[in-house]
Design a protein around this nucleic acid. Sequence first.
DNA 1: TGATTACCTGATCTGCGGGTCAAAAATTGC
DNA 2: GCAATTTTTGACCCGCAGATCAGGTAATCA
Lengths: 202, 202
Amino acid sequence: MASIRERNRSIILKVASEEFAEKGFAATKIIDIANKAKLPKPNVYYYFKSKENLYRSVLESVVEPLLEAAEPFEHYDDPETALRQYIRAKITISQNHPDASKVFASEIMHGAPHLPQDIVDQLNNQAQECIARLEQWIERGLMEPVNPRHLLFTIWASTQTYADFDWQITSVTGKDKLDQQDYDDAAELITRLVLAGCLPRR
Amino acid sequence: MASIRERNRSIILKVASEEFAEKGFAATKIIDIANKAKLPKPNVYYYFKSKENLYRSVLESVVEPLLEAAEPFEHYDDPETALRQYIRAKITISQNHPDASKVFASEIMHGAPHLPQDIVDQLNNQAQECIARLEQWIERGLMEPVNPRHLLFTIWASTQTYADFDWQITSVTGKDKLDQQDYDDAAELITRLVLAGCLPRR
DNA sequence: TGATTACCTGATCTGCGGGTCAAAAATTGC
DNA sequence: GCAATTTTTGACCCGCAGATCAGGTAATCA
């Protein structure tokens, strides 16, 4: 079996991301995380030196999938394919990592006070590359001349909303939980709007 | 001059919404609100019985503009005009009430634990009316058959993002603060995508 | 001008939650 | 099977922030 250390760390991380997602950093109590992980409180401090530290670890666990999602922009030299796949990837993150997504969103919303600078830089660089790519496609006439920054903001917002504001979503749809079909529908609508607004009229 | 009571309450409310927006409910300290309002801490408790109470008052102050924004759906029996104006109105809220918007977003993100039920009902009813209206337009062939719920989610998300995630926006654009042009550009892009994706092809 | 009410304020209480510690128990490596 | 290391644990400490209070001062009105 995996080492005790590894095992416990990952249990704590999982539980912590649920708690931080639900309550936010300040409102989350270490004792609740400990209880939910079926460990005594000092164990949490044994594996993660402080609340701050644990929180940062949770934050860091989101970054990888987030960076991966932008790969379509590098892999495809074609706006339709790239945008389709990008939107799909972002929706999938909301579906598969809702807690991480929420923690990240909450962090950004309050000015990213705990987000390490190198992560900030990585994300910013990636955004700039996406923007450059979009500008290039526009210049080559593969896309209509839309503002690439605002296009990105819209895609980010409309895909993340399915994780971050799930309460609102389920409240309006009347469902307890979204199913695969809902995520597919969401991806389809967002893709439709983006492509209709961005691709050159045939 | 307005009564002392009125004046102080409104100062506290303003400062409180700034603080709650910046830090979130749990991380906000009454003493900070008091200092920023240049009042001793007990005064805050004199006008608002508790932190909870003050926070709810802030929340309630957001609801009115939010409900107003949906008026275009009642006033215009034409999807293009209604959607144009709705998107414009939502962007204007992000521009003019960023703090209120953030507080509200944060509340929703964490499952609306402090939001009074009657407000929840009001907002839900309104959403259902918008959806009904969209469905009706689709039936009458004024709009393409898009999923009205997901359309709303996308509009909400992409307009609110300019208030809720302003840190990210300014970080990517490199600006300290968005100007009128930026909000206009945002409204234009979102409108473009929505209309291109929803209106029947001519 | 005196009484009543509204408002202000320094000092204080209290509980809660982050963080620690020392010692026990379990695991590991030789 | 024994020493070294890792992990577990209950008890404890401490500071902070929400909340209160009692006594003061200022406004209001007769």
